[in-house]
Design a protein around this nucleic acid. Structure first.
Length: 864
RNA sequence: GCCCGAGUGGCGGAACGGCAGACGCAACGGACUUAAAAUCCGUUGAGGUAAUACCUCGUGCGGGUUCGAAUCCCGCCUCGGGCACCA
């Protein structure tokens, strides 16, 4: 810091104003304020981990904070809350290791997070703070579960689940990657278990269609569409030769029925037992055993070669009565469609691989356009001979059957339609829709989650508790280890388990599973509206006032799951009439990840930062002496490239930190953190201070007077108001800050600085750097916070020049720059340009073909 | 393999189809200082040239549209993210 007594001292003014805002409830959101438009701006609330905040958290928080502060100054009643998504595995793992109750760990972590977040000066309404682990909160999570159950959307099912022996729990599909747990990277195996499921598939169509109504990044919407995975096609019923059984398959290509040469069942398909002939029984049994012990990883990674076994049975192709051999193979999944397919090797790459592997017939029934085939490197003759596979468009051939269907000569599209019509008329099938989306596995075998409001009664019935019996609180435990049997640690809480029905006196045992972490975050945005309500999860009138969320900002890692689950719950709540909107989040923005600076050697290996030495701007590996290249990489403990926000705030202050994070680049972009770059923003705020304050006295500088601005200053002032306003509306914070810097460069060099211009500048900067601006505002003689001062308006006429520099190009190359009246029309511009001596020199002896004049911009002279 | 997104100085990044590199960092030169820090002023895409005049090249690569392309179109390459035997 400078030696001056009254220089810019973030450490003092930031504490002062944070305290002021809290004491004065400056950012309290007012329910039902009809005098102002409402604005609900939401951050994805954090999981309060033991590691504390990292520099990625405040990126989105700063963006929304700037937007909120700006909108308050534009007269909006802003709701901007914060809370804690505090159930979850890490606190429980810590409890297992140390015996510390997750409640205690969670409380400490929340305190630390709150302290860190407050140090940024975010304008949250702290009176609405929520915590998903508070029984007063999760009572309502349980209440919503009861509503789901009442609607028939929650059911118990024995399902093969991802059992992780090391964690002693079942994991959801999204918690397993390549057959290993996301958390801890332990192996995962399949195992059947009775679980709560939520029927999200019932909402698939609406979740898909309503994406159209949302102002979300196109990429995120596309990811949700892919996740829902709607496809249209047909279900076709195949009779089994010499048996009563039928096999129903789902296909998106009913037009290829004539190309079917065999059938495949998933190894898990219950029909396999019935159909397998005695001769094949042994082989089938062996195959099923092998696949069941295969992990998900092996089933996908080792799939270069197709495997399978013939069942000995045959099915009848309804279009031509042909017998098709029925195989089983693990390339057919039980969980998608009907767990059975008709194989058309000539027109499906997977079937083609399988047929080639086992010498099955490949029958071409679709002839592509010659040039299409050539483009794809496919030979028509090879195709017709069944030596290659064609999945593209074309004209149907060899597709007339004994049963009255003839689709020869048709395109794929019309052949599909005609086949479906025929299937429906002949009773062999029907048009059908399928989704990749599956029902949501909602049980976890863990302690630190919401208990289910469910009791298994003595008579075998399942009882959902009454609303008056909520909340079902977590029992006290000393030992948090998983039971290893698949039951959660709750199974050890003996007294807690016992339940007696208050009316009938019948005994029962409580559900020992708990809800997944997603549960609490599925509806938290509603609780902020009415955080202390004990009669309802949220008052409907408050919902009507505040909802929907106008802007939701968070990381792209929640692109699918959190956002899809929350949308699902919200639609259910909408259907039962307890919320007023059918979508919760109107506009969504993903902030890009902030990477750390790392180093890599010539082989591309990343070297931890504490092993790197710098000499004259070149980096070396301390151990090998090898020269290293700077390289941005995801922040991680192992690379030691994690930046701690506390240290940055101590060194530079929160205002500089906030501004740096916004100046790094566009909000949505992935950006590398460079601590030295923050100096530029720190310098900017120091210069801002000295532009207004005399740092010898701490009073407003003598240069700040009521003297009129120069034309240039006036123009820069209004251009700044315009640019900053427009950029704030578009969340383009980096370019808004650039403009503020241009203002500072213009005014700080001036001998006298107009006081009103200074005040406008302070207001424009305030959303970005609120602490220093409050302080400057006060020193400029204002008693109240500037949080609700009116946002400056710009005057377009003040920005006008009388003359502008017009570029004159010859054949697109810049030749001259001429001053012309702003409002010069095309002819005038052309005349002025052609009259210029330099231009005439260039044009000497050449024919002017054409002159293009763009008013206010340029003149381009086209010559021969 | 499929679906998105992105490639611009030494670095982060700006540019309604209209002067590429705003703004910042770093670097270099200068002022102030006993000195340093801080601060202030200046230079800074590459190459040619005595030159700050001037010329040539330049937004991943190859084509195209246009008076004019970082921007639009076609075909590639590389990197990042997502999905992954979805019938």
């Amino acid at each position: 810091m400078g030696e001056t007594r009254h220089g810019y001292k973030p450490e003092t003014i930031e504490a002062k104003w944070q305290d002021y805002w809290l004491r004065n409830h400056t950012f309290k959101a007012v329910d039902f304020d009809a005098s102002r438009p409402k604005l609900y701006v939401l951050d994805m609330f954090p999981y309060p981990s033991g590691a504390g905040l990292h520099v990625g958290h405040p990126e989105g928080y700063t963006a929304t904070d700037i937007y909120c502060r700006y909108k308050r100054m534009r007269g909006f009643n802003v709701l901007h809350p914060m809370g804690w998504d505090a159930f979850g595995l890490p606190a429980e793992q810590y409890a297992i290791e140390t015996g510390t109750h997750p409640r205690d760990t969670t409380r400490q972590n929340i305190e630390n997070f709150r302290r860190q977040i407050r140090a940024f000066g975010f304008s949250y309404d702290w009176e609405r703070e929520i915590n998903t682990t508070n029984p007063k909160y999760y009572r309502w999570t349980q209440w919503i579960f009861i509503q789901l159950h009442k609607k028939g959307l929650a059911y118990l099912e024995e399902v093969p689940v991802n059992w992780c022996p090391a964690l002693g729990t079942v994991l959801a599909n999204e918690e397993v990657v390549n057959g290993r747990s996301v958390r801890g990277d332990h192996p995962v195996v399949q195992r059947p278990m009775k679980q709560w499921m939520l029927r999200i598939t019932e909402y698939a169509e609406r979740l898909l269609n309503d994406l159209e109504t949302l102002d979300w990044p196109e990429g995120i919407k596309e990811m949700q569409r892919n996740w829902i995975g709607k496809s249209t096609g047909a279900e076709v019923v195949f009779d089994v030769v010499n048996r009563d059984d039928t096999i129903t398959v789902y296909t998106t290509r009913p037009d290829t029925l004539f190309g079917a040469t065999y059938m495949v069942l998933s190894p898990e398909n219950p029909l396999v037992d019935k159909l397998t002939t005695p001769k094949q029984r042994e082989a089938v049994r062996n195959y099923r055993e092998t696949t069941s012990t295969k992990s998900e990883l092996e089933r996908t990674e080792l799939s270069k070669e197709k495997t399978g076994v013939f069942t000995g049975a045959y099915a009848i192709n309804p279009v031509n009565g042909e017998n098709l051999p029925i195989w089983i193979s693990d390339y057919v999944m039980m969980s998608y469609g009907t767990g059975a397919i008709m194989a058309v090797p000539a027109h499906d790459t997977r079937d083609f691989e399988f047929a080639t592997q086992f010498g099955l017939e490949v029958r071409c029934i679709l002839e592509p356009d010659e040039s299409d085939a050539a483009d794809a490197g496919v030979s028509r003759n090879a195709l017709l001979a069944g030596q290659q596979c064609w999945t593209g468009d074309g004209v149907l051939i060899n597709s007339a059957g004994t049963q009255g269907l003839d689709i020869n000569g048709l395109s794929v599209e019309s052949a599909k339609e005609k086949t479906i019509r025929w299937l429906e008329e002949s009773g062999c099938g029907k048009g059908a829709v399928n989704y990749k989306l599956r029902d949501w596995l909602f049980s976890r075998q863990r302690y630190w989650g919401e208990p289910f409001p469910v009791v298994y009664m003595e008579d075998g019935s399942v009882k959902l508790l009454e609303e008056s019996e909520l909340p079902v609180t977590l029992p006290e435990l000393d030992d948090f280890r998983p039971t290893g049997t698949g039951e959660s640690p709750l199974a050890k809480a003996e007294d807690w388990l016992e339940y007696v029905d208050p009316e009938t006196g019948m005994k029962g045992r409580r559900e020992t599973h708990t809800m997944p972490q997603w549960a609490g975050s599925c509806w938290y945005y509603l609780r902020y509206l009415d955080p202390n309500n004990t009669d309802a999860f949220c008052d409907l009138e408050k919902d009507k006032y505040w909802m929907p969320v106008d802007l939701y900002v968070g990381g792209a890692e929640h692109a699918v799951l959190h956002l899809l689950y929350a949308r699902f719950w919200h639609k259910v709540l909408y259907d039962i009439g307890v919320v007023s909107t059918d979508e919760p989040f109107k506009k969504l923005v993903n902030q890009g990840m902030i990477l750390g600076i790392s180093y890599r050697d010539s082989q591309g290996r990343l070297v931890p930062n504490d092993q790197v030495e710098e000499t004259d701007g070149v980096f070396y590996d301390r151990n090998t002496g090898e020269e290293l290249e700077e390289f941005p990489a995801k922040m991680s403990k192992s690379l030691r490239n994690v930046v701690n926000p506390d240290e940055i705030i101590t060194r530079y202050g929160a205002d500089s930190f906030r501004m740096y994070e916004m100046f790094m680049g566009p909000l949505e972009a992935v950006k590398p953190w460079q601590t030295r770059d923050i100096e530029g923003l720190s310098r900017f705020l120091g210069r801002t201070w000295r532009m207004i304050i005399d740092d010898e006295t701490g009073e407003v500088a003598g240069a700040v007077t009521d003297a009129a601005m120069t034309r240039d200053q006036e123009r820069v002032l209004h251009a700044t108001i315009k640019k900053v306003t427009e950029d704030l509306e578009g969340l383009d914070f980096n370019t808004a800050i650039s403009q503020l810097m241009i203002f500072l460069n213009e005014f700080s060099k001036a001998e006298v600085r107009n006081r009103e211009a200074m005040e406008i500048f302070v207001k424009l900067l305030a959303p970005f750097a609120p602490h220093i601006c409050e302080e400057l505002w006060e020193r400029l003689g204002h008693a109240d916070t500037l949080a609700y001062e009116a946002w400056p308006e710009f005057d377009e006429s003040k920005m006008k020049l009388e003359e502008v520099e017009i570029l004159v190009q010859v054949k697109g190359k810049p030749k001259a720059r001429l001053m012309m009246p702003v409002d010069a029309d095309r002819e005038t511009m052309e005349k002025l340009a052609l009259a210029d001596a330099d231009v005439q020199g260039t044009l000497e002896g050449r024919d002017v073909v054409k002159v293009i004049a763009v008013p206010g911009r340029l003149v381009n002279i086209v010559i021969k």
